[in-house]
């Protein structure tokens, strides 16, 4: 499928969502709902789905039970392909990230994001540049200088291949003109432990993936890839909290913004009321105190992008990723 065709399809979906917004939400789930998680248990996406499940169960927002099913095979592709095969069944909700549209670009997969119906992006996870506690550099600028000076460049660990972590690594190495050898691990937790053990020089983990390690004094963040500093929150170490971490631009690395949306989808061929039902449900979820607790606790940024806006968001991200992927030679022919 060509890229333009994808946009047309995405716009079609958004038009649908628009009409949906006005339709009356009559539909209700009639049997138990399956939350399909496109990642293994314990990861960021898994916690996201379980947090939504937690809020819904606690406040009895639906009458039907919810079952969480992990489909982590193929870096999440298993979950999306399963969702594609469930066309027309509104009781299968899939939880993922931007890999829903990024992965089909870089790997030969039997689905594209246009085979799914987007519901919403509910939260944006942040990225930070982490180094070992006893590393000599204090700012991103020092880090770049040190990487420049080292023959063979620095080793950057991350979760999965050709996904957000590697994307960001390529952006850093281009922006700063340094060589970074990217070493993919199964997940961010593993990348954090490898950094603590000194087997790699740095990683770009999400806050929740490295929080325990920072508190435990094995590694520290140099900067956050956001135009603003993170909200203050509780103290993490004796002296510092998240708001003490400078933005990467402040710290001497000109990448103003890099985030990962956590997204919710239905299969294709669902009716507009069904889409509206879930959009409203997810809105309600976001209003509950437990949701706010989850967001603060994992140091993510709450957001609610649905309908038209979501389609536009996806379209822009597809363009951006497509550009980097084609420069790196990652694109696969369909």
């Amino acid at each position: 499928m060509s890229l333009t065709a994808r946009y047309v399809a995405a716009c079609g979906v958004s038009l649908l969502a628009l009409t949906v917004g006005q339709a009356k939400a009559d539909w209700k789930p009639t049997k138990s709902i399956e939350f399909v998680v496109t990642a293994g248990p314990g990861g960021g996406t898994d916690n996201f789905a379980r947090a939504v499940q937690n809020v819904i169960t606690k406040h009895k927002l639906i009458d039907q039970p919810i079952v969480v099913v992990n489909k982590p095979g193929g870096s999440g592709a298993e979950g999306y392909i399963y969702e594609k095969s469930q066309a027309g069944d509104p009781h299968k909700v899939v939880f993922g990230t931007s890999n829903a549209w990024q992965q089909p670009m870089v790997a030969k997969l039997a689905y594209n994001y246009t085979d799914l119906t987007p519901i919403a992006a509910m939260v944006q996870d942040e990225f930070l540049l982490w180094v070992k506690q006893d590393a000599p550099y204090k700012t991103a600028k020092d880090y770049v200088a040190a990487a420049n000076a080292k023959a063979g460049g620095f080793k950057m660990g991350g979760a999965q291949s050709k996904d957000t972590d590697e994307l960001l690594t390529r952006m850093i190495s281009k922006e700063a003109g340094i060589k970074l050898v990217y070493v993919p691990f199964k997940g961010g937790g593993e990348a954090a432990v490898q950094l603590a053990g000194g087997h790699i020089d740095s990683n770009v983990n999400n806050p929740s993936e490295s929080l325990g390690q920072w508190r435990g004094g094995t590694q520290r963040p140099l900067c956050v890839f956001n135009s603003k500093r993170l909200p203050k929150g509780d103290k993490i170490t004796a002296t510092e909290s998240w708001s003490d971490v400078p933005t990467c631009v402040e710290s001497g690395l000109n990448i103003p913004m890099f985030q990962q949306p956590r997204t919710v989808w239905l299969p294709s061929k669902v009716t507009p009321d069904q889409v509206t039902f879930y959009i409203n449900l997810m809105k309600k979820v976001q209003e509950q105190p437990e949701w706010k607790e989850y967001v603060t606790h994992t140091s993510q940024t709450s957001t609610f992008i649905a309908g038209d806006e979501f389609a536009k968001f996806i379209k822009e991200d597809v363009e951006r990723v497509h550009k980097i992927a084609s420069e790196e030679g990652w694109l696969v022919s369909k």
Binding site: G212, R215, G216
Partner: peptide
């Protein structure tokens, strides 16, 4: 995953 939901952070501390 449960630890995280109960509000605990696995890690050195």
């Amino acid at each position: 995953g449960g630890l995280m939901i109960w509000g605990l952070n696995p890690g050195p501390t």
